[in-house]
Design a protein around this nucleic acid. Structure first.
Length: 285
DNA sequence: AGGCACTGAGTTATCTGACG
DNA sequence: CGTCAGATAACTCAGTGCCT
């Protein structure tokens, strides 16, 4: 699995999502707050984000100003041939070490990365086998560049967040602890943070682009998918209770809303995948 | 028959915009 | 940063269908 999208325009994509592969996200221009897991990044041109796809992420975009970014999705398995060379540098370490990470590239470093992106684009545009292979090599080069940057002492990587963003960061930190709690409510957040319920709702949406409970439910449904994957024997009811839902009906409806398929249907799909996988393995031997 | 997953519809909580 | 009120979305209960 390898996908490269050069300088694509993001207009309206407040879609909170996760995926099973890794992502490299480079911000070219525009205005964007990026919410990844429990962190909010106020992106500036030259920012590069490394992401473990299982972490929920979503950009919060100003619809007036289109923003331009390049995105690379990849399955680390495709890099194996390059990583097993005797002199190989462990370029995947930054992805493994930090669940997600932002590099602020400026000046020479920014130019170098953009140069690599251009090279990748030219290889991609050839559209043949050689192009494909060189695209991958250029990407491996990019990973070396990233690895190198991660070794540099962090000259200030972080902008100073506004008070509002700090508060939202606090809300998110709190939610990280309690998002699976079945007693979670605005009342609880209000009592812990001493801010009015409507104000909490307002600044959260302002900064992240999603409502508070949308954030919570995205996290829960994401967790549900992981539970179904790792523990096929768990029933839908059991999973819904573990995630803090008081009613199966509620979980079922939200799951279908987000995943476009019922939880039971999702389990069945996973089962089919597993059987297919086994079958292919059997034929392989 | 009994358990489980899902849906319809009324109730309740959250969201959002206006205003102080 | 808070309050208020109307709009919207989530919660809950009751009921249905499917499977064993």
């Amino acid at each position: 699995m390898f996908e490269f999208n050069y300088r694509s325009i993001g207009m309206f994509e407040p879609i909170f999502h996760s995926h099973t592969f890794y992502e490299v996200y480079y911000f070219h221009e525009g205005k964007c707050n990026y919410l990844i897991g429990d962190q909010i990044y106020n992106l500036s041109p030259g920012d590069l984000i490394l992401m473990n796809g299982m972490t929920l992420h979503c950009p919060k975009v100003d619809p007036e100003i289109p923003y331009i970014r390049s995105i690379i999705h990849f399955d680390p398995a495709i890099l194996r041939p390059y990583l097993e060379l005797p002199q190989a540098v462990p370029v995947m370490r930054p992805f493994e070490q930090f669940k997600n990470y932002r590099l602020c590239l400026r000046g020479k470093e920014k130019e170098e990365l953009e140069q690599i992106l251009l090279v990748m684009l030219s290889h991609q545009q050839r559209g043949d086998k050689v192009g494909e292979s060189r695209l991958l090599l250029a990407f491996v080069d990019m990973l070396h560049f990233i690895y190198d940057q991660c070794l540099q002492p962090l000259g200030e990587q972080r902008e100073v967040p506004s008070d509002k963003e700090k508060t939202v960061q606090e809300i998110i930190a709190l939610l990280e602890d309690v998002y699976m709690d079945d007693e979670l409510s605005m009342e609880l957040l209000h009592s812990k943070l001493h801010l009015s319920k409507s104000y909490l709702a307002k600044i959260f949406k302002d900064v992240t682009g999603v409502t508070l409970f949308e954030y919570v439910y995205r996290k829960r449904i994401n967790e549900a998918k992981i539970l179904f994957l790792l523990h096929p024997s768990l029933s839908v009811t059991e999973v819904s209770f573990r995630l803090g839902f008081k009613h199966l009906a509620h979980f079922s409806r939200l799951f279908k809303q987000q995943v476009k398929i019922t939880p039971e249907g999702y389990k069945k799909e996973l089962k089919k995948d597993r059987q297919l996988h086994k079958q292919l393995e059997g034929e392989g031997n």
